[in-house]
Amino acid sequence: MSPVLVLDMDGTLVDTNYHHAIAWFRAFRRSDVTVPVWRIHRAIGMGGDQLVPTVAGDDVEERLGDTVRDAWKKEVDAILGEVCAIEGARELLEAARDAGYVVVLASSGKPDHVDRYLDLLDARELAHDWTTSADVSETKPEPNLIEVALQKAGEAEAVVVGDSVWDCQAAQRIGLPSVAVRTGGFGERELLDNGASRVYDDLAQLRADLPGLPTGKPK
């Protein structure tokens, strides 16, 4: 059976991390809560269910969590048209297909956001399948997203590719190897310290290394 490439979208294939950070900042401010943008950026890659208590505390989550998440959707929708594909994203997808990987695009993003990214990347014919927030009950760093991606692919050996420490932690929790690219703004050392076996500066470096990526089976 062909190996599976569980490939993150936000921050890895599409340049959204800083858009999300600004949208969350504005969403909190709608409820008169100010969270420094740098702190929000450190949590990008988590789902909204995890991000709000992580950056603002359990009290804000209990009182305002759903309100902030609804506001975030409005804020990010307003700037979604500014999002661009990361250089080399389409070429990476083509190379992964040609290298024999079953590619599953793993995202906990809203379905309409994922549809936009698929269009932006022209990725529908290159990916075996993809996920959205509708598919998952728990977001990263919980491994549910990866588990769903593997179910869609047939549960073969796999490697997880992402841009954040949360991608690496999620893979580690399920016993899968991960590699990371620095396109999300996280540093090499912290990605390695959180479980990445290799870190690449850009998608071109990752593409060149596709034939030699480590794979494994989930525990």
Rank of each mutant, 00 (worst) to 15 (best):
Glu61Ala: 14
Leu80Asn: 03
Glu91Met: 02
Glu94Gln: 15
Asp70Thr: 03
Leu93Lys: 11
Val68Thr: 06
Trp38Ala: 13
Trp166Asn: 08
Ala149Ser: 15
Asp115Leu: 15
Pro111Phe: 13
Asp135Glu: 05
Val160Phe: 01
Lys110Cys: 00
Val136Asn: 04
Leu64Cys: 07
Ala96Thr: 00
Ala43Leu: 10
Arg29Pro: 01
His128Arg: 10
Ala95Tyr: 12
Gly47Cys: 11
His113Ile: 07
Thr139Val: 01
Ala153Arg: 12
Ser108Arg: 14
Ala171Pro: 01
Val37Ile: 15
Ala127Cys: 06
Asp70Leu: 07
Thr54Tyr: 15
Val60Ile: 13
Gly88Cys: 03
Ser107Lys: 12
Val33Phe: 09
Arg63Ser: 08
Gly45Ser: 10
Asp119Ile: 07
Ala134Cys: 07
Arg42Gly: 01
Glu125Thr: 08
Gly48Leu: 05
Val160Trp: 01
Ala171Ser: 04
Ala43Gly: 10
Cys168Leu: 05
Leu80Cys: 01
Leu118Ser: 07
Val37Cys: 06
Val148Ile: 13
Asp58Glu: 14
Tyr101Ile: 00
Pro111Gly: 08
Leu150Asn: 04
Val76Trp: 01
Met46Arg: 13
Ala127Ile: 01
Ser107Pro: 01
His128Ile: 00
Asp32Thr: 01
Ile146His: 09
Arg97Lys: 15
Asp59Arg: 15
Asp59His: 15
Val160Cys: 06
Trp72Ser: 04
Leu120Phe: 09
Leu121Gln: 09
Cys168Val: 01
Asp163Trp: 13
Ala127Leu: 02
Arg90Val: 02
Met46Pro: 03
Val104Asp: 01
Lys140Trp: 11
Ser31Pro: 00
Ala43His: 09
Asp49Lys: 15
Ser137Gln: 12
Thr139Gln: 15
Glu61Pro: 04
Lys140Val: 00
Arg42Gln: 12
Leu105Asp: 02
Arg116Asp: 05
Ala56Asp: 09
Trp72His: 14
Val60Phe: 14
Leu92Ser: 01
Tyr101Ala: 07
Thr67Tyr: 15
Val159Phe: 12
Ser108His: 14
Ala156Pro: 10
Asp58Val: 07
Val35Leu: 06
Val103Trp: 06
Val37Pro: 04
Asp98Met: 11
Gly109Asn: 12
Leu150Gln: 11
Val68Arg: 12
Arg124Met: 06
Cys84His: 14
Val114Lys: 12
Val52Gly: 06
Lys73Gln: 11
Val114Glu: 09
Glu125Trp: 02
Thr132Ala: 07
Ala106Trp: 03
Leu120Ala: 12
Gly162Met: 10
Gly48Pro: 05
Trp38Pro: 01
His113Lys: 08
Arg173Asp: 14
Gln172Lys: 14
Val55Pro: 08
Gly57Pro: 08
Lys152Cys: 04
Asp115Trp: 13
Glu87Ser: 03
Ser133Trp: 00
Val102Arg: 15
